[in-house]
């Protein structure tokens, strides 16, 4: 008797954001991430029979997703040769422009670091969010990141406004202490 049941109809609502964030931390590209998540759902659908109910649905889907990500890197690895050829062409064009000027970092580089920091911050936030109880995390995400109205969330979860604020308060405290070490200096 399986302890966890499987229901593909709820997958997208429940797991798509989680899986998407998991993927984007590993492939760094929205479109590819989305494709991989979609493929994961397809694969999950196909092998639903094999789901034994020992793990939770999410764990099971993540296991599939991991394989998909590995496959993605295998495929892109076989394209590596092309990139090398292009690199060489850049090296050959000595004729254009002043080399010194080209070598000087352009002002956009300034953003590069903060962009990386942004990505790391995003990852850290989602990791911390993962540690919260599921309901708290959902409500906090809806309220803070997606900016839903208090009223809409209350209706959705069937709670009162003061309930919501208590949950938000706990979530915020937990998030702050979770992020404290790296991001509150």
């Amino acid at each position: 008797m399986p302890t966890n049941v499987i229901d593909p109809n709820t997958w997208i609502d429940k797991y798509s954001n989680y899986l998407f964030n998991y993927t984007i931390g590993r492939v760094n590209n929205r479109e590819i991430a989305q494709d991989l998540v979609q493929e994961t759902f397809f694969a999950g659908l196909k092998s639903m029979k094999n789901f034994k109910g020992e793990a939770s649905e999410r764990t099971w889907l993540v296991a599939i997703l991991k394989r998909k990500i590995i496959d993605h890197y295998r495929k892109s690895n076989s394209k590596k040769g092309k990139a090398e050829v292009r690199m060489q062409q850049i090296g050959d064009t000595e004729t254009e422009g002043d080399w010194l000027e080209e070598k000087v970092a352009d002002p956009f580089e300034l953003n590069a670091e903060s962009e990386i920091e942004n990505k790391e911050l995003g990852k850290a936030i989602y990791q911390c969010l993962d540690k919260l109880p599921e309901k708290h995390a959902d409500i906090f995400r809806l309220k803070t990141i997606q900016g839903f109205d208090t009223e809409a969330i209350c209706n959705e979860y069937n709670i009162t406004a003061s309930n919501l604020w208590v949950i938000i308060h706990r979530a915020r405290t937990a998030m702050a202490s979770c992020l404290e070490n790296n991001w509150f200096k």
Binding site: N17, F20, F41, N118, I145, L179, W183
Partner: peptide
């Protein structure tokens, strides 16, 4: 901090498309 992360959530449209495909 929360304001400064890139919102890496799927849009509702994207979700709908995924749902239809599924």
């Amino acid at each position: 901090l929360l304001k400064h992360i890139e919102t890496e959530e799927l849009s509702e449209d994207d979700k709908r498309i995924m749902k239809q495909n599924l």
